[in-house]
Design a protein around this nucleic acid. Structure first.
Lengths: 352, 352
DNA sequence: CTGAAAGCGCTTACAG
DNA sequence: CTGAAAGCGCTTACAG
């Protein structure tokens, strides 16, 4: 009788607490939000009642009355991709620390699904949304599912023409760093492989690649760039295609790390020694990059921190900040490991 | 003026709709839940009002009145681990299809954090919880944060003594399959590496390993089993330790795939040819297993489907089903690729 | 410092 | 088939 009684009957509410503590429910509410306007004695009495009745705060009821809920929608384009899993972890962690709780959706790069979950999240009363848009998302479609009224930030994938704040790494500069490093190692025939040409992130990375080439007085050769799925097997295919096309390059920078891993594996299978015969550089620095064979030289995008940053931008928005000021571009950092062949000697063998 | 008006002012409610359509809000509510007791004409009028006013259903308000919400807590022990990411994707997908929406928490194997997020989820009024428990979670602690009243199912990691339904693969039989296959290939000195001894999943897998050894009349040799972190670097360390200890084995079954990948890499670095000199078998069949060098022979746990099954068990529970009947053990399947050396000839070289 | 009342946006009986 | 009223569990002014 003295113990908690939940589920079997009805849940304990602040009215039960008020009755038990001999105060009004307004007072209970004040205790709940840690108001300084409650006498310590009263607070104690109320808190003892919480204990005794096994009270659980009903946040949904509170949300109904408040300006916004503590839910945030987190929609991820491909959670099976370790890069986006890392992003999700970064967002989730930051959100909890900021007093919010994430509702998850994995769109799996499907725009229809994306539209549906966005709608569902609005119905569930999220305070805002962090979105890594599905491939091919356009500004118009986005405005449809995400009217101005609902705070939202885009992350990791820009959407051309969308007015939403964007948080992501400086892809262009990152690619430039990678290529510059390769050039400093004596490389001259450097390819770029992986990813779809329509992907805005790839567009940015590719222009960084061109920047570096140009700065070094090297020609941009279209025969050295290959599209593919942005996955392991995509990387495998892309490098295989490059080999077949006799592209005669001695190094590649890859759209991302999984592409680099796939390429690395295809090359290894042909007996090409990566880091000696041929150089490979990845992008993102996912956790597995350092465990690749050989360990991958890659451009770190500091993914988790970027996720946290997106969370903070969203909270800024919710708090009424100017959207324009909530965009953020993170610095990248080249992480030199073995696959680029730094300090391994000459690249004598042209592949392909 | 005729267009939607959200955010700037207040959101459109069923009262606005009722007024616009010339009906009462009860009728609007009936339309919302697709009741057959509304005349088509009336329904049409109401639906037109939805369109015109840009109505968004407020599910939280509805939840307040209904028996349960459409939120489900999904608490994952380590989302950075591709195995659990795959599990999360399976759960998420099933939940959406069943009309529920997942709230995500990544405990990162931290029990304190787990207790906190469980509490937070209850406050947010989840209809139930799917939990892959953090390492070291005990039945007592679990009952504290998860009273009987709230429907919950455990997945992928058993908790000794907990009355909660458990959904997971048949680890014991899976390990048996792996070892039997190795034995059929002529292997006799088979080790078991990776994972912590306290992990219930490892306990199950290890007993399957012993089962197969015993059935084949092979001795169980403690000197052939090595603990480690359940990660890539753990696998790297475990096999390195085994080599240093001169364990003289010619094959290992690994606690999971990432351990196998780490082991594979360490072995490769020493010039040991996996699948010829030495056999490695993983567990789980994560997506990357087939892209490993060499492709990993492993025990498939059908992780995504297992996640979906956990979701269905939870909904059963929410619907009032008997918890005992909601447990489920999934069949495992050996996926033979190259790392076990099937059809590659003799294992002549003892390693270590 | 505390209480009484209204309201958040729905659903749920209950009438008609 | 439709409407008027009460209620879900909180917060928010407003009194006192």
């Amino acid at each position: 009788m003295a113990a908690a009684k939940r589920g079997s009957g009805r849940a304990t509410t602040i009215i039960d607490i008020a009755r038990a503590a001999g105060v009004s429910k307004s007072t209970v509410s004040l205790v709940l939000k840690n108001s300084p306007h409650v006498r310590p004695v009263t607070r104690d009495r109320v808190e003892r009642a919480f204990e005794q009745l096994g009270y659980v705060y009903n946040r949904s009821a509170a949300n109904l009355r408040k300006a916004h809920s503590s839910f945030v929608g987190m929609v991820i384009s491909d959670l099976m991709n370790p890069f986006f899993a890392e992003l999700a972890v970064g967002i989730e962690d930051a959100l909890y620390n900021l007093g919010f709780i994430p509702i998850l959706a994995n769109t799996n790069e499907d725009r229809e699904r994306q539209a549906k979950v966005l709608q569902s999240m609005r119905e569930h009363g999220v305070a805002g949304i962090i979105l890594s848009p599905a491939g091919g998302t356009d500004a118009w479609g986005l405005t449809e599912s995400l009217p101005r009224a609902i705070p939202a930030v885009l992350t990791m994938r820009r959407v051309e023409g969308s007015p939403l704040p964007y948080v992501g790494p400086d892809n262009r500069n990152g690619a430039r760093q990678a290529v510059e490093h390769l050039i400093s190692l004596g490389q001259r025939r450097i390819g770029f492989i992986g990813g779809y040409a329509s992907n805005t992130t790839r567009v940015e990375r590719l222009s960084g690649y061109r920047d570096a080439l140009q700065a070094a007085g090297l020609p941009y050769d279209e025969a050295l760039v290959f599209e593919s799925m942005p996955t392991r097997s995509g990387g495998f295919d892309a490098i295989t295609e490059a080999l077949a096309a006799q592209a005669r390059m001695t190094a590649v920078v890859c759209f991302n790390d999984v592409v680099a891993m796939g390429a690395t594996r295809a090359l290894g299978l042909r007996g090409i020694r990566i880091g000696r015969d041929f150089a490979v550089v990845g992008f993102d620095d996912i956790a597995e990059a350092e465990h690749n064979a050989p360990p991958l030289t890659t451009v770190s995008t500091d993914t988790r921190r970027m996720g946290a940053r997106a969370a903070r931008s969203l909270l800024g928005l919710i708090g009424g900040a100017d959207p324009v000021s909530m965009s953020f571009m993170g610095e990248t950092r080249l992480v030199v490991r073995e696959s680029c062949g730094a300090g391994q000697g000459e690249f004598t063998r042209e592949v392909g």
